[in-house]
Amino acid sequence: MINCERFAQQLSDYLEGEVSEENYKLLNAHENSCNKCAEMVINARLLSKMLRNIPAIKASDNFTKNLRLKLAAETALQKNGAVKRAVINVRTFSLKPVVVTFAAAASFFIAFILLDSYILDDDSEVLMSPRIEIPPLPGTDQNANANQNLFVPNQMQVGGFTVSDSLEKFFQDTVGESLMKDDPSRAPRKDSKR
């Protein structure tokens, strides 16, 4: 049995023929027996006709012209944007040397501070790492250099340089053989630890 509520729910399907034959008969029977629903059907048909007959609004005559102008403006903006990006890139590129120089200077400064704290202890003596000492220039005071060397134990001469004991083992283990075989005075120390 169809009541008014169910009839209203199926009104569009009923008018558009989207209901089964059996259901159509039930809806049709209700329409014929209910004045309110019959009036609703008449109004729905009239409204549908009115909606379909509403004059269609058309685009204005200069619609396409305006669209072309907008597209042209947008294309120009895109090109302008590309130029601006290129200028920015050039500027960025020209700034790069300054940035690199600054970064390099900062790196050297940090490295200097780190090395300084690494090499020198509180007494400003060479303790933490070996240091190659420059041999005295001809005509300079040899004793002064000798006195200086007294503070560095177990020194040896390699290639005209005085190296500390800790480097002696390094040279013996790596380049010692090739550097020292021609000079007996530079032979590896017997008491050195291998």
Partner: peptide, 13 residues
Amino acid sequence: VKSRVNRGRLKLQ
């Protein structure tokens, strides 16, 4: 969609 169309038409009525 069908339900909304139907209810919309009833509201317009």
